[in-house]
Simulated assay, not measured.
Amino acid sequence: MSNVGFRIVQYNNRVNQEVIEGFKGIATSNIGDVMGRMYAMDHSIKSVNKPGIHIVGSALTVRTHPSDNLMVHKAMDMAKPGDIIVIDACGDMGNAILGELMCHYAKTKGIVGYIVDGPIRDLYSIAEMNFPVFAKGGTPRGPYKEGPGEINTVISCGNVAVSPGDIIVADDDGIVVIPKGDVEDVLRKSQDIQTKEKMVIESIYNENWDRTWVDETLKRKGCKVIDEYAYREK
C-alpha cells in the first residue's frame, strides 16, 4: 500500500560529497546558465539572511499541507549533515512553516539550510543568527502539527521539480536545482563559465574587452542604423 499523501521514503543515495563541495563559491547565475536557464526557483523565494549568503547541499524534500509542519519536524530528525531541507508548502502564505527554534535545532544537526515555498516566522532572529533560510516571506501565524505530508518524494518548490538527492545551490540571487544525474556535467560547465568570467573582468580593466559581437548580432537580426536628421524628417 503506497499511502500517497502521508508517507516517508527512506533515501540514502546522495551524490558524492566531493562533487557537492565543488559547487561552493560558484554563483547560481553561472550554474543556471549552463542548465538552459530552466532550473531556477521563482524569485519570490528569497534569502532572509544578511547579504553574502551562499549554500550548497543535498535536497531532503518535504511536501506538507500549507498550514502544517509535522513532516518538516520529522525531516529535521532524519536529516544528515550537508542536507538542505526543501519544503513544498504550496506557496500558501497563511501559516509559518518554521521559525527560530527549528533553525537552532537544524544548526546542531549540521543541516545546511531551509528552502520554503511558503512563509516563516521569527525573521529577525533567524537573520541575526545567520542560519540560511530562503522563504516567500513572513507571518506571525504558527502552523499545526497534524499532517498529512510526504518526505523524500518528488516535490515542486518555486515552480521547479525537486527530487531527493538533487543538489541545491542558493545565494543572494536565488536558488538553482541541479538534477542529481547531471551534477558532474553541470559542475564542469559551471567551473568553465566562472573561469571565462574572470578572464572577461580582467579584459574589461585592461580595456581590451571584445565588443564586436553586439553590432554583429544587431546586423544579423536586421537592426538599421538611421541618420538622426533623416529620422526627424520622417
Rank of each mutant, 00 (worst) to 15 (best):
V160C: 06
R7V: 12
V162K: 01
D117P: 13
V56K: 04
A89W: 10
S156K: 09
N152L: 11
H73W: 07
G32L: 03
G110W: 06
P143A: 15
A40R: 00
V200D: 07
M93A: 12
A75V: 05
G147E: 09
N13I: 01
D173P: 00
K224V: 15
V19G: 08
S44N: 01
R188I: 12
K221R: 14
G82H: 09
V176L: 06
T217E: 07
F23L: 08
M102C: 06
Y39H: 08
R37K: 00
G99A: 12
V116T: 04
L70I: 07
A230C: 02
S44R: 14
Y205Q: 04
I53P: 02
K189F: 04
Y231V: 05
N12D: 15
K196A: 12
K221T: 09
A161I: 06
E228Q: 06
K196F: 13
V56D: 06
V169Y: 11
N130I: 00
G142C: 04
A127G: 08
Y229M: 14
H43W: 02
N95D: 08
V225C: 05
K234V: 11
E233M: 14
T139D: 15
P179M: 03
D92A: 09
V154H: 01
L70N: 02
M41H: 00
G158F: 11
G222S: 11
T61N: 03
M38H: 04
R220K: 14
D182F: 02
V160M: 06
I87R: 13
E202H: 09
V214Y: 15
G118K: 10
T139Y: 10
G99D: 12
